[in-house]
């Protein structure tokens, strides 16, 4: 049982980071970023190239993943989403754009990195063994880094000036603009941060599970799940959703093992029931 909880916590920390990025972008721009999983994969490939191929330290690789994705996110916001949001009659048009960017990133990664599964050498070898829990050290390190990043992100959103500006934007775009918040600038920063989070998680996880160009879509779906559980556009909700999904996956894989591969089926079914009772997730605001 302790093993299951430890696995769940470790998975949950990763998932929460992914969901945070998605929910941040959604809160600021009202854009459902279909390309989130692809951003995650791209982050993984950057780390793979720098840490696995060029043999530079893992930390450098992680930072590079984050920076690359932040730049890509900022560019996407400035040149793709901003004009479309401004000009289209229906806000759903951004969804098409996001889906097209997902295809685009998939294509680029397929061309640059091929379709093979890529892995990197372990960052720390060895396994932590106690009488109840067995966890490899690298998983512990990755989990701790993820939790630290979540904490840093929350502190940033709570106390820094850009963080406050972004929270204001998420609450009421027009009011924030009237109060002198530079809406366009902080939208861009927010998008970049969301993309950066996805990239960093990708970089973190490549050291454990490896990466291949096909997993972007499934990761996006998982991120959507977490956001739905917690409520879209709410930071606390994303974190809660991430941990809940991680825990359910961990428990499900253990409990439902003898029935075959139905963990996700059960999770989906539970989600449907949950959403019919609470359509806006745990903490989401009921908006139209």
């Amino acid at each position: 049982m302790e093993q299951v909880i430890a696995n769940g916590l470790y998975l949950g920390a990763q998932y929460a980071l992914i969901a945070l990025g998605l929910t941040l972008i959604f809160a600021l721009m009202n854009v459902l970023n279909f390309a989130h999983g692809q951003m995650y994969v791209l982050g993984g490939f950057v780390t793979y190239t720098i840490y696995g191929q060029l043999k530079l330290p893992f930390v450098v690789a992680l930072i590079c993943s984050g920076v690359t994705l932040a730049i890509i996110g900022a560019l996407m916001e400035k040149f793709l989403f901003r004009p479309v949001v401004r000009r289209s009659k229906r806000e759903e048009s951004t969804m098409l754009l996001a889906a097209a960017t997902a295809f685009f990133l998939d294509a680029v990664m397929l061309l640059l990195f091929g379709e093979k599964q890529r892995g990197v050498p372990k960052i720390i070898s060895g396994v932590f063994v106690s009488d109840r829990v067995i966890l490899p050290y690298d998983r512990i390190v990755v989990g701790v880094i993820a939790i630290l990043m979540i904490a840093a992100f929350m502190l940033f959103m709570q106390y820094s000036k850009p963080g406050r500006a972004m929270r204001a934007l998420a609450q009421d775009r027009v009011a924030a603009q009237l109060m002198g918040v530079k809406v366009e600038r902080y939208s861009m920063i927010g998008f970049a941060m969301g993309a950066m989070l996805a990239g960093v998680v990708g970089g973190l996880l490549v050291s454990i599970t490896g990466v291949n160009s096909g997993i972007g879509g499934p990761i996006s779906i998982k991120a959507f799940l977490m956001v739905m559980i917690g409520g879209a556009g709410v930071v606390g909700g994303a974190i809660a959703g991430g941990f809940i999904l991680g825990m359910m996956e961990s428990v499900g894989l253990t409990v439902l093992r003898e029935y075959g591969d139905i963990t996700y089926l059960v999770i989906f079914a539970l989600l449907m029931i949950f959403l019919s009772i609470r359509p806006h997730g745990l903490m989401g605001k009921p908006w139209g």
Binding site: F26, L32, M95, I221, F224, L225, V227, M228, A232, Y264, L265, F268, A269, L271, M272, I273, L275, S276, P279, H280, G281, G284, W287, G288
Partner: peptide
Amino acid sequence: PILRLRGVYFAMVSLVLTEV
């Protein structure tokens, strides 16, 4: 149940439905 959801919520649930 799911048609009570709107906007992105419905979009996400329906996406999940395909996977289900």
